[in-house]
């Protein structure tokens, strides 16, 4: 594409990462132990991807299509409800 046709400042329509599946990047996947989870949402704040999903009833689950397996949620979860488990 010619430089004349590109949108100056590299501006693109938002929301592109929601259509981008990153599950192939993972070596380990975070698994939430529902019995330990207090729904504090710390993981939701820290997760760098749109991978922690908050449900109406308050539950927290992981959207594995958008989880890159960085393990930040495991480190930050106060009651240690998340463990990183090796992908098969």
């Amino acid at each position: 594409m010619s430089w004349k046709e590109l949108e100056a400042g590299a501006v693109v329509k938002g929301g592109t990462s929601s259509s981008y599946v990153v599950s192939g990047w993972r070596v380990k996947r975070p698994v939430i132990d529902e019995a330990k989870c207090t729904n504090c949402l710390i993981c939701w704040i820290y997760c760098p991807e749109p991978a922690i999903v908050r449900h109406q009833e308050g539950k927290v689950t992981i959207d594995y299509d958008h989880c890159k397996g960085c393990g930040i949620c495991e480190t930050e979860c106060p009651p240690k409800a998340i463990s990183m488990v090796r992908e098969p």
Partner: peptide, 19 residues
């Protein structure tokens, strides 16, 4: 919503700098 300063590749970065 828009993304500003989105990621470029070797196919586009040079052209953004040309602009």
């Amino acid at each position: 919503p828009f993304t500003f300063g989105a990621m470029a590749t070797p196919e586009t970065y040079y052209e953004f700098r040309m602009q």
